[in-house]
Design a protein around this nucleic acid. Sequence first.
DNA 1: GCAATGACTGGAG
DNA 2: CCTCCAGCCATTG
Length: 117
Amino acid sequence: MTEKQYSIRSVDFFEKVYDVVRMIPKGRVTSYRAIAIHLGASKSARLVGAALHLCSHLIPPVPAHRVVNSQGLLSGKHSFATPSLMADLLKKEGVEVVDDKVQHFQKLFWHPNGAED
DNA sequence: GCAATGACTGGAG
DNA sequence: CCTCCAGCCATTG
């Protein structure tokens, strides 16, 4: 299986992750844990990362570059086409990135709930 | 089905 | 803020 057909339960979780990530406004970022909690799986932040690792082949593409770890670190930059793509995309959206870390992380943090903007 | 892996996290030093 | 350690859980071999 290289495209779909994951375990029934995970499909639901993965789809939710993609849906939330696609809601992230441009120039904003969020963390894996925030998404996991929003989906009711605060202990499965790693699964969010796993989902984003597979999002590359999806249509429409998921703005995974807007998802970072709790420290604002671009933990998944190495999973993109090029290691510099993630930081580059964020910079193009107006997000300051230094040493693979999002600056003003708390200020740019986007909450999946009704705190969109 | 077991063992290893990982885009994580929080606590402790 | 940085590093190390232990817990988490679906995916993969």
